[in-house]
């Protein structure tokens, strides 16, 4: 067990899988010679060569398309989209091709492909570099979508994603690459379809994924000081969406908050809330509260940006309100 930053945990997963399986290769913009925009792929081109760590032109459709064709032809590509904002120009390849190919060809082929890409705001990068879109992908049958929030899960889920026979959207977050945590050495696999309680509690359930998991954990620590015991459920598996730990938790706490970094409408929280209404309506003592980004294109100004994205204070205020403790 070593303490690693998220980016190094991801790097370790890539290195281990590339060593384990010759058919695994990486492709993306500036992932090789430049070592990656966020240094997740640092040192890998040096170690594995230019064929297995392919620097591509700035051509997103080609990155995803090449990965799909290579996957159908027997390889296991891991494509990096520099940020999730840029995948918009390749959405056809992701949705109409990667997600649908297996089904529309009657199961005649498969697309074992991982697309790694970070979203997230809070760095004054404005409207075209700050958003989170995991719900867009989680809407699509044929894709798997995961968004880990700890270094250990990042390593374990990336290794599982590379071994999976389906296209997996592996959503990272620019705000978490430097976050540190204990990471098991060597063979550490985390399933792609299991959510889990990251912090047990009795009074209220907070579910969150990716960077918002960290926000939720911090909020729970603060709430504890005020005598509120919050249970935090990590929603790292978004599609397929594992609801079991949320439903179980709500049956205990009767109150639920969802936290996400993307916009609220049609968001991850909307889906979780619907499913809780379907599966545990009678257990709820209050409507599900959704915390999400303000519905504006991310502003540049620091103060505006700060209020546009959810933070610890939002979670605390909402939790107290739900418990009638404001």
């Amino acid at each position: 067990m070593a303490v690693l930053a998220m980016r190094d945990a991801l790097n370790q997963a890539l290195r281990e899988e590339m060593k384990r399986d010759e058919s695994v290769f990486l492709l993306g913009e500036d992932i090789g010679l430049y070592d990656g925009s966020f240094k997740v792929t640092r040192g890998l081109m040096k170690e594995f060569g230019e064929k297995r760590v392919l620097d591509t032109p700035i051509a997103e459709e080609i990155i995803i398309g090449t990965a799909i064709g290579a996957a159908m032809s027997g390889l296991r590509p891991v494509a990096e989209m520099m940020t999730v904002n840029f995948i918009m120009v390749a959405m056809d390849q992701v949705v109409n091709a990667a997600a649908h190919i297996r089904y529309m060809f009657g199961g005649g082929t498969k697309v074992p492909l991982v697309i790694r890409t970070p979203g997230g705001g809070g760095h004054q990068l404005g409207a075209q570099h700050s958003h989170s879109h995991e719900n867009w992908f989680a809407h699509v049958p044929g894709l798997k979508v995961v968004a880990p929030g700890t270094p250990a899960d990042a390593k374990g889920m990336l290794k599982s994603a590379i071994r999976d026979d389906n296209p997996v959207m592996f959503i990272e977050n620019e705000g978490t690459y430097a976050i540190k945590g204990e990471v098991p050495d060597g063979e550490h696999l985390v399933p792609l379809d299991k959510n889990e309680v990251k912090r047990p509690g009795d009074d209220i359930t907070i579910c969150a994924h990716s960077r918002m998991l960290i926000v939720a954990m911090d909020a729970a620590t603060e709430l504890e000081k005020e005598g509120i015991s919050a249970e935090v459920v990590d929603m790292r598996a978004l599609r397929p969406l594992d609801m079991a730990p949320v439903v179980e938790s709500v049956k205990k706490t009767s109150r639920l908050i969802t936290v996400e970094e993307g916009w609220r409408s049609y968001g991850v929280g909307s889906e979780i809330a619907s499913r809780v209404y379907e599966e545990a309506f009678d257990y709820l003592d209050a409507p599900v509260a959704r915390i999400a980004a303000a519905e504006v294109p991310a502003p540049y100004n620091k103060r505006l940006e700060k209020i546009a994205f959810p933070g610890k204070a939002d979670v605390i205020v909402t939790a107290k309100a739900l418990l009638g403790k404001n």
Binding site: G65, I68, G69, A70, A71, N96
Partner: peptide
């Protein structure tokens, strides 16, 4: 390797098979 109904979509995918052959 398939009929694709989005104009131009299959060309990048064909490149992927080409890459796999070289690989």
């Amino acid at each position: 390797y398939g009929g694709y109904a989005i104009v131009g979509e299959a060309l990048p995918i064909a490149c992927g098979s080409g890459y796999a052959i070289n690989y």
